[in-house]
Nucleic acid binder design. Structure first.
Lengths: 130, 130, 130, 130
DNA sequence: TTTT
DNA sequence: TTTT
C-alpha cells in the first residue's frame, strides 16, 4: 500500500513532455495548504507527475490556481544533478485527478479521470524526460 | 487534505533525537515495495518522521525489517545542504503507526498508536534537529 | 486501520440532536456520485454522523447540496427496528470535514475542521439518540 | 472520491458465487478492531464484496482469521428482504486486497492483488446473486 | 520558484 | 427519502 490523497491548487500550469517512446508525461506542483497553517509558509508544494492519457487530460484541462483532488502514490526517484551528484526527488505519481473546480467548458458533472486502465507505474525511471 | 498511507518495512532502526525545546523526534526510512515491481529497484525508500510520544513509541518498539502501516501527511521541508545550497526534502510526518508484526513482547492485538492528541504539526521547521 | 474518504454533496440539511449527557450529534446523508455512473441510480447515499464540536460546525455551516470532503471511519451499529427486530446499520463517523464550497459567509480559505482533539470515538453506541 | 481502506481479519471463509452471466463474486465479513476498543464489542464487522478475478483470488487464498488490508469503495445496495420490505445494505466493494499474513504457500513478499484492470464497478446491482 |  |  502506497497511497497519497491530496487536495490543493495548481501552483503552475502543467508542463507536458514526451518520452523517447512517445508517452506523454505531465508535471506540475500542487500547493497543499497546511491545516492550521498561518502566514506565507503554510503550504507544501508537492511535485506531481501524470502519465499517458491522464497526462494529456491534465495538460488540456488544468491551469494554475485550479483546485483538484489527486490520488496517487509517493515515489522516490534518483537523478543526476547538474553538479554530477546523484540526488533523490520525491513526487506523487497521479492515478486519479478529480476536478473540484471547472476551468471553462463544463463537461458534465463527473469530472473524474482515472488512469487505472492505462498501465500506470509500468514505466522505468530512466524514461522520464526531465 | 494531505493524506499518506503506507505499508512497508523499516529499512533501519529509528533514530530518536530531541529538539532544543525537548521534543522527541524519531526518523527512519520505510521501504515500500512497488506493486508489480521486480528486481532490486522495486521499492521506494521513504523518509518518515514522528514527533513526541509517537516518536518515543517508535524508538522503543520498532526495529529494522519490521512491517508497519503508517498514516501521515506529506511534507516538503527546506534545509541548507553541506555545500551551502538550499535544498528541499520530502518526508512523511507520521500521525498513526500500526504494527503489523510484533517485535518481541505481544501486547494485545490492537497495536495502534495515535498521536493525534499530542499536538502534531505544530512545530516549526527550524526546530527539527537534523 | 479503518479509514473512509468521501467527496459528495449533502442530500439534506444536517440534523443536530443531543445525547442524554448533552453531547451534540449531527447526522445527514451524503450523495457520492459513482464514477462512470449514468442515469439516476448513479450515486451512493451514505449516512454520516458527526459528534460534539464537529457536529455543531456541521449544523451551523452545512446545507443541502453543498459539496464536502469527509474523512472518517466506517462503523456498523446495531439498533432495534420498529418491528422489534435487531438490525444493523452502517454509517461513517466523520473525523474531519473539509468544505469544498462555501455556504454564504467566507470565513478564510482554510475551512478544515478537525475533531481529533475532541475525543472522537469514545461514545458508547447506546448513547446515540436516534 | 469514494475510498475505503481497512485492516482487519476475515470473520469467516469467503463464499464465492457466480452471477447468471458467469462473473465470480466473493463475499465475506471483515472484523476491524476499533482503536481504543475494549472487550468483545470492540470491532466492526464489515461486509466485503469482490468481483471476478479478485473474487477468485480471495476464494482461493483467504481463510477465516487471516489478516488483510482492503482498499475499495463504500456502496449502498438495495435489496428485498424476506418480509418483502425493501432494505438497504452497505458493503465495501474491494478493489485491492493485500495479504498481511500468508495462508500456507509463501508466494513472494508482494502479495498485492489489484482488480483495477478487470472492470470493477461495471456490474448492475441486480446481477448480484445474493 | 510557486496556489487561494 | 435524497445531491449536482
Amino acid at each position: 500500500m502506497n497511497k497519497v490523497i491530496l487536495v490543493g491548487r495548481l501552483a503552475q500550469d502543467p508542463e507536458v513532455r514526451y518520452t523517447q517512446s512517445g508517452k506523454a508525461v505531465a508535471s506540475f506542483t500542487l500547493a497543499v495548504n497546511r491545516f492550521g497553517g498561518q502566514g506565507q509558509n503554510s503550504a507544501d508544494f508537492i511535485p506531481i507527475v501524470a502519465w499517458e492519457k491522464l497526462a494529456e487530460v491534465c495538460g488540456n484541462n488544468l491551469t494554475k490556481g485550479q483546485r483538484v483532488l489527486i490520488e496517487g502514490r509517493l515515489q522516490i526517484r534518483s537523478y543526476e544533478a547538474n553538479d554530477g551528484q546523484k540526488r533523490r526527488i520525491a513526487e506523487v505519481v497521479a492515478q486519479t485527478v478529480e476536478f473540484l473546480e471547472k476551468k471553462q467548458q463544463p463537461s458534465g458533472d463527473n469530472e473524474n479521470i482515472d488512469v487505472n486502465s492505462f498501465g500506470k507505474d509500468v514505466f522505468p525511471d530512466e524514461e522520464i524526460p526531465f
